[in-house]
Amino acid sequence: MRLATALYRRFAWLIHELARFASVGAVAYVVQVAATNAFWAVLDAPPLVGQGLGTVLSVIVAFLGHRHWTFHQRARTGLHRESTLFFIMNGVGMLIQLLCVWVAVYVLGFEGQLATNIAGNVVGVGLGTLFRYWSYRRWVFPAAEGPEENAKNREKAETRRG
Rank of each mutant, 00 (worst) to 15 (best):
A22W: 11
V33W: 12
W40R: 12
A28Q: 09
N37E: 05
F39P: 01
P46Y: 06
A26L: 14
A35F: 02
F39W: 06
T36E: 04
V42G: 08
A38H: 02
Q51I: 00
Y29F: 15
V27C: 12
A45M: 04
Q51H: 03
A41Q: 14
G25N: 13
Q32E: 14
G50P: 00
L43C: 08
V30P: 07
S23Y: 12
V30F: 13
V30N: 07
V27E: 11
A28C: 07
F39D: 00
A38I: 03
A22C: 13
V33K: 03
A38D: 02
G25L: 10
S23R: 11
A26W: 12
A22M: 12
V42L: 14
V31L: 03
A45G: 02
V42A: 12
Q32W: 05
V27M: 13
V31W: 05
A41H: 15
Y29R: 11
D44S: 13
Q51P: 01
L48A: 04
V42Q: 13
A45Y: 05
A45K: 04
L48K: 02
D44L: 09
A28I: 06
A35I: 02
A22N: 13
A34K: 02
V33N: 03
V42K: 10
W40N: 04
P46T: 07
A35D: 00
A38F: 06
L48G: 02
G50R: 01
Q51C: 02
L48W: 03
T36A: 08
P46S: 13
S23K: 12
G25D: 14
V30A: 14
Y29G: 09
T36V: 04
V30D: 08
A28R: 08
P47K: 03
W40L: 10
A28H: 09
V33C: 03
V49E: 00
D44K: 14
D44E: 09
A41W: 14
V42I: 11
V30G: 11
Y29C: 09
Y29P: 10
W40Y: 08
F39E: 02
V42P: 09
A28F: 08
L48N: 01
A41L: 15
